[in-house]
Amino acid sequence: MNLKGLSEVKSKQPPVDTWSPPFCGDMNLLIKANGEWFHEGGKFTRAAMVTMFSRILWYEAGEYFLVTPVEKVRIQVEDAPFLVTGWEWIDTELGPTLEFHTHTEDVMRLGLDCDLWMATYKGEERPYISMRYGMKALVARPVFYGLVESLEQVQTLEGSGVGIKSAGKSYLLMQDA
C-alpha cells in the first residue's frame, strides 16, 4: 500500500478522541479473545459491521466503550479488540518496514505508528501491536508464524535475543537465556 492508501484508511477514523458524551450504561457486546464480535449472544456475521463499530471504539481506564458524539456505552473485551490478519514488508525512507493489516481494515506500520511486544494471556505468550487510543491488536498465529523467517538477533533496552527490525527499530520477542 502506498502512503496515499494509508492516509485514506486513517481518514476513515472519526474524531472519537474529541468527543466527550455522557456514559449511558452497558451494552451486551463482547469481543472474544479470538477477535470475534458478539451482540446479545449472537455472532456478528458481517465484517463491515465489525469494522464500522471498531471505528468508534474507545479505551479508557482499563475499559472499552463505543462512543458517538452523544452517547458512550461500555462493552466487554476478553483480550484485545483487534486482530492482525495480514502483513507485508514495504520500503520506506527508514528502510524495510513491516506493515500489519487488521480484520477491521486498519493498517499499522511497525516502528512508525505501532510497536510490537509479547505478553501473557491466560498462561500463553502472545504477540501484540499497539493501536489507536491505547488499544492493542493480537497478532494472529498464522501471521506470527509467517514472520518467523524475518526473525534475527536484536539488541534493545530490554536486552538481546531474537526479534524483528522494522523502520530502523528493533523489537525483542525472545530474550537470550
Rank of each mutant, 00 (worst) to 15 (best):
M1C: 14
L3Y: 09
S7N: 09
V9R: 13
K12Q: 15
K12N: 11
Q13P: 00
P15D: 10
P15N: 14
D17P: 01
W19A: 11
W19S: 06
S20P: 02
S20G: 09
S20E: 04
P21S: 12
D26P: 02
N28I: 11
N28V: 05
L29M: 10
K32M: 10
E40D: 15
G42M: 11
M49S: 08
M49H: 13
M49D: 08
V50P: 00
T51F: 03
M52R: 09
M52L: 15
R55T: 04
R55V: 12
I56H: 03
I56A: 12
W58E: 11
W58D: 08
A61E: 11
G62D: 06
G62N: 10
E63P: 02
F65P: 01
L66Y: 10
T68E: 11
K72F: 07
V73R: 06
V73E: 03
R74W: 06
V77W: 03
E78A: 13
D79W: 03
F82G: 00
G86L: 06
I90D: 00
D91V: 11
T92S: 13
T97L: 05
L98K: 01
F100N: 00
H103Q: 13
E105R: 05
V107D: 01
M108Y: 04
R109C: 04
L110W: 04
L112D: 02
D113E: 09
C114T: 09
D115A: 12
D115F: 12
W117G: 07
M118N: 07
M118Y: 03
M118I: 13
M118G: 02
A119R: 05
Y121R: 04
K122P: 06
E124G: 08
E125T: 10
E125S: 14
M131Q: 02
R132A: 13
R132G: 11
Y133F: 13
Y133W: 13
G134E: 07
M135Q: 12
A137F: 06
A140P: 01
G146H: 04
V148F: 03
V148I: 10
S150H: 14
S150G: 10
L151R: 02
L151Y: 06
E152C: 13
Q153N: 09
T156C: 06
E158A: 15
G161M: 04
G161L: 04
K165P: 01
S166Y: 03
G168K: 01
Y171I: 02
Y171R: 04
L172I: 06
M174A: 14
Q175H: 07
D176T: 13
